[in-house]
Design a protein around this nucleic acid. Structure first.
Lengths: 205, 205, 205, 205
DNA sequence: TATGAATGAGGTTTCATTCAT
DNA sequence: GATGAATGAAACCTCATTCAT
């Protein structure tokens, strides 16, 4: 019984947390991190400003969780998607597709992660910044590891695989920016093949 | 004589303006656009806050001019560099190299231009936002125009040339991020060949 | 119960609003509209500057509400006082007396209303200015309407009744200034008879 | 020779001073004392801000001279106009007419004097306020003195002649306000007879 | 004398955060 | 647990005033 109540409480806890995060992502993606106020987030979530502070220590943590919680999911999804695929090229394709599908499923997260995350990217003095860095590193490791294998067995030219990852990742970002800027807000995943094709062709040994 | 005094005045004017812009770029590149305050810019420039307002209407304009003034120079340099080159592939190379050299020459401008300028968030309702949009469009037009020619005569595969520009531009951005993140803060232009090689190979028809 | 809480909330809301308005009137009446700062108002009200902004949009609105809220009460009182009095001369007397008693009851409001409200300068382009103008017009209409009747049935000479109102209203103002300047800060209403006597005699047909 | 140069210098001095005062009155009458900036005054006068400080110590003194210099002229004119008129009623008429003609000749001065002078009126702590008070007293003395004579020999009812002055003066003010508010910006002096008629009739013993 | 340039001081406003209920 | 109310801290911006030229 004790346990069940505990569960219920946690469920409610999580429900609220998720709702606030969604609201925050929505607001940040629309107005930018700086211009997004706690009040707007509260309004979007349909709760009061003070309530946010029951679930998040402060604005920085809220923002950081917007990014990091999503990244945790993304990273899990990527690892799951890649598991058991022997062919590194095939694996790279799956990894990219997973990312894009993830982005398609939540444009707001994407915008916060891709466009607004430079604060976290550079500020290593804050707990939040360091936590973000961990995820960032993990993503880089997953992707660059796979790319390295492609270089070794998949016919890709040899170069720093981390550098290669940054190029590939940026192409995805560029494609997303294009689709947003041009107003053609179609699914990013439909462009996965094009991006990979250009990248793999371009990187051929 | 009259003329000479006029010139001198303009020179001083420009000197101050440039000094403030440099200070602003420096502060923004260090603390991020949101966290940069007018006070910090003033301190960095060695002047008082109020003086900034003699040369810039408000913070928004100062920020946009950080980007826009640099872009004007960049765009001029690109147009000059491209002039008279018949071969579109060669021209594309020159355009990319020019951008990278430009960025290498002023890292602070680079950070504001590449990292802080959140293209998606510029406010087209403000004078400043529209001015920025103009430059953005001009850059896109120059690059995508050249890319289109490469598609027609240079053996590149056919696709939306604007989309292609976003991909290429993003690769440059990715390379820059890599060099920053990895701490190897070498010149970006030394990577121009690699980026173009991958892009052009990848885009081969 | 719901209703009761609602009432209580509104009560508190109104209490604060009124407290701030009183503080503002006090400060303005002492230092003048121009020199009154939000900080002084906050201090006088015993709250923080930021709290004022929970109840008033900005300084302009606060100022106008100092006048406009008082005028609303004054206008109601005048309409009530005049209601059901058939004789226009008698009605005019009641109207004047009501104004003066009202002013006597709140010297701070009086100073803001009579001395600081620079009718000529209200800005009709702002919401606040238009709201003030409405009240001003209503007062003019009430008084000039009554004066017109006095001209038709009360033996007053014929002239533009609005002009006549301005004359009468100014006499009240002059009397107030006199009592302030001479230091004899007695009740204005005790002079109502004198003013009216002079005005009505003077205006006899 | 020395004398002549001295004269010329003084002439220029006076020319500048007068130009600045006119500009200041114009700006203050349009925007109100508070909103009028030294810059606007300088622009209106066609000189630089700093130049104003060659002729006036600070904004307060500039403002004060706007009022007081005009009042000095007005008071001289009134004394001259009243000189040698034995009949106090006739003299009162001349005094009022002089004031109104003076106001007609310079609406800006009127607006500054009548509408914006409350700062000076109440602030006796500043040199400026005290100087203004002197003129104010002198005006009151001239008018109330004449009114007292009217009470003694002209058939006016007995009352505090200073109070009577405030009433009469206010009527003039009210008439001016009316003409400005109603847009019928005709000469105030044409209404002198009406005002005096009402006042004198009203004040009949 | 005249002024362009600079600034100190201070005002308005915003917002993340706290706390009593 | 939820929130309405309050606020400290800080940001932006303005303007009267000074001073070197």
């Amino acid at each position: 019984m004790e346990k069940k109540l505990q569960d219920k409480k946690e469920l409610i806890q999580q429900f609220r947390t998720e709702g606030i995060l969604d609201a925050a992502r929505s607001v940040i993606s629309k107005r930018g991190l700086d211009k997004a106020t706690m009040e707007q987030v509260a309004d979007e979530a349909g709760i009061s400003k003070a309530t946010i502070y029951l679930y998040f220590k402060n604005k920085e943590e809220l923002y950081y969780r917007c990014v990091v919680d999503g990244m945790d999911e993304l990273l899990s999804a990527m690892e799951k998607a890649a598991a058991g695929i022997a062919d590194p090229l095939e694996r790279l394709k799956r990894l990219m597709l997973t990312q894009m599908e993830f982005i398609d499923a939540d444009r707001d997260f994407f915008k916060v992660y891709i466009i607004e995350s430079r604060d976290l990217l550079f500020d290593k003095t804050s707990e939040c910044g360091r936590e973000f860095a961990k995820r960032h590193d993990r993503l880089v490791r997953i992707m660059s590891g796979c790319i390295r294998e492609c270089m070794e067995n998949g016919g890709l030219r040899k170069m720093d695989p981390i550098k290669a990852h940054y190029l590939l990742f940026s192409m995805m970002r560029g494609m997303a920016m294009f689709s947003i800027m041009s107003g053609k807000d179609g699914p990013l995943s439909s462009e996965a093949a094009v991006i990979l094709d250009i990248f793999l062709n371009g990187m051929k040994a």
